[in-house]
Design a protein around this nucleic acid. Structure first.
Lengths: 123, 123
DNA sequence: CCGATAGATCGACGATTGTCAATATGAAAT
DNA sequence: ATTTCATATTGACAATCGTCGATCTATCGG
């Protein structure tokens, strides 16, 4: 492979306030049967929270309001590649964002995405 | 196998208002790092919603306020065993309950469980 | 009793997932 | 430039998952 590899896509070095894959779910799933594309979109988000380790990582990031991966490895009790994998899954699902600051990455939750999920389960 | 088989455990024929695996999550995951057992409990619920087909089934059940499996098979476009499998997963996760009425089963959502999930994602 | 209908269970299959050791990249610090 | 630290990527592995055809159970209508 050439030297210009693709790199990580889940971390925006600085930059463009990326538009989420919104437009998909806007309302509650309880009111009327959700269509397939919208269901797939929501399911991806729920899948990101469907693992205990990932849910705890998400919780730790949310509670700390901006944690770097290095601070997550020890308390979560998993290897560094595993933590990196999980943060990527959470980021790809739009639940967290990584802001690269020097040597490390500061992860933080994406409130809009969270609102979307809560609304989907909403009464 | 003897004639007294175990039967389906996800459908309560009539009966004891079963106690959910509550006590686990009571509050938001965002405030402080969630512990492992509680994370596992919540993750199981999110895992039930992590599949597009299951999410649509859940949505259809919620929107109709009590649907039988036979009415779900055709619109969901999956085989009967698959639908049965998914309703069982949803029921095991505590998200829906099946009330057996004669020949068919009437599925309906469990609001308390839904509240719990929304609270876990709550601000 | 018999046939029909609703649903659950079993067994198998390919696909996806969570995990880690090894390695690579990239950015500070020396 | 060399080392060190934070993180990403790769490759492999067992485990779990979604799906279906075939079959079993249970209930209702004759």
């Amino acid at each position: 492979m050439k030297s210009t590899a693709v790199k990580n896509t889940s971390v925006k070095t600085t930059g463009t306030r990326s538009s989420l894959p919104v437009g998909a779910a806007c309302c509650s799933v309880l009111e009327e049967p959700v269509a397939e594309p919208e269901a797939a979109e929501l399911a991806r988000a729920f899948a990101a929270l469907a693992d205990p380790v990932r849910l705890r990582l998400f919780s730790m990031i949310a509670a700390s309001g901006g944690a770097c991966s290095c601070d997550l490895i020890e308390p979560i009790g998993k290897s560094q590649p595993t933590v990196s994998h999980h943060t990527k899954v959470l980021a790809d699902a739009g639940l967290i964002t990584g802001e690269k600051a020097g040597r490390w990455v500061s992860w933080s939750v994406v409130p809009e995405r969270l609102d979307q999920l809560r609304a989907a389960l909403g009464a």
